[in-house]
Nucleic acid binder design. Sequence first.
DNA 1: CGACCGATTGACTATTTTCAAGTGGTGTGG
DNA 2: CCACACCACTTGAAAATAGTCAATCGGTCG
Lengths: 245, 245
Amino acid sequence: MPHLKAKGHCLSCPVRNRSIFSDLPEESLNLSIKNFHTSVLSYDSGESIFLQGENSSESAYTLRKGLIKITKSLPDGRVQIVRILVAGDLFGFDGLADETYNHTATALTNCEVCRLPLADLAEVRKNNPKVDSSIMSRLIKNLRQTEDMLLELGAKKASEKLASFILSLSQSDIRSELNKNDEIQWVVLPLSRSEIGALLGLTIETVSRFLSDWKRRGFIKESRGNIQIIDADGLKAAACLDGSC
Amino acid sequence: MPHLKAKGHCLSCPVRNRSIFSDLPEESLNLSIKNFHTSVLSYDSGESIFLQGENSSESAYTLRKGLIKITKSLPDGRVQIVRILVAGDLFGFDGLADETYNHTATALTNCEVCRLPLADLAEVRKNNPKVDSSIMSRLIKNLRQTEDMLLELGAKKASEKLASFILSLSQSDIRSELNKNDEIQWVVLPLSRSEIGALLGLTIETVSRFLSDWKRRGFIKESRGNIQIIDADGLKAAACLDGSC
DNA sequence: CGACCGATTGACTATTTTCAAGTGGTGTGG
DNA sequence: CCACACCACTTGAAAATAGTCAATCGGTCG
């Protein structure tokens, strides 16, 4: 169960400069905020923020802290991870198109989430056209990222998918997010083998086999759940056709 | 090469009521239109409207007539079809997020396309906030559809993907689009086996084998490139696990 | 210490791809 | 009008790939 942490304080929000309000001058936000009943919710790792199919007309969300996985599933339980959210990401915005949630959002770590009532958001949007542009820009980026994943899933072989994933991880926001508040060199990426599989359309065993092989051949190392690339060129040569990774 | 057919006439546009301007009263459109330099372009089947990686800052497009495929490809030539566009669809809008085109758009049939200069569109958006909502709503629908495809590609087996595709086809806008201007009962879906494969992440042979099998077993018929479902329940029973289609 | 749970590994199986040959329809040129 | 080429599609056999099932490992926590 989510735990209500506090009323929202947009001005002091840790992700304000990465949120959909990042373009607004402080006074605009100040004005709008009066009738903007945001709330900050805490979720424990594993808890769901919303479920695929639920009514989405009430609220959208911004992730303040932690990581969230967005998933879709088949009636028989097979799961596909759609994307991983990092701090500042807007999510659960299906209500802007009069829809139910098209996917499930689940905390991968302990999370803090800012709940944005759509009714209040509509008010802010009306007074600040920049917010619309900011939301649009995020939607387009989501769409681009999802199209990229489509290519990964539809056109690549298992080893290529997994190698691309590892290589992109090393430069991604997910990694920065994990390193941000943390001096430790090796940070745990909170994805199990089974979740990596659910992201790439592979089984746990296939993921495990390739990773083991690459560790034996010295391309990667793993410590406390964190994967580190030792020899990117070797990995690409072994796993990828024609620069596909 | 595209052929310039005419200056745009938004008011008499055949897809006006399905476009991003469908919510605008006629007088607003009349006003805005003065400085809106749309043009209608004709493309032959097989021609590209834009290519993955090209600069997208100039224009977005609306499809007026015909069908378009949106594709992404790997350096070695493997192709993934991302979606199929029908009349009224907005596309090529990456420029709204300051990006290059993330994919290629290619005419599947002879097409008519309305080119929307982004600079002029910005003007219309400023004066008509409803247009923003309409664009957003389309972006969200695109995103939902693409997420659905991710589940198809990542979690389903070949027979399930193909059966879902055929079943959805029978109720889709693509089929309606093809039937619209045409009295013929059997209308050709302009997708080759290889394109069906590129859409579902399968080879031409795998597609062909399942279709042949299902024809032999009387679940489907095919005439002049058009697939018709005879026994949906039989098809589902044969091809799909646990209601996955 | 023992239970538990995720990860690994092996052996086997199923699925899908690859490669290759053949079919059938369409359109062109003799 | 026929012969031929072309091209998409089909089919078969073999190979590669990924999945399934089952045993085991290894770390963590009570």
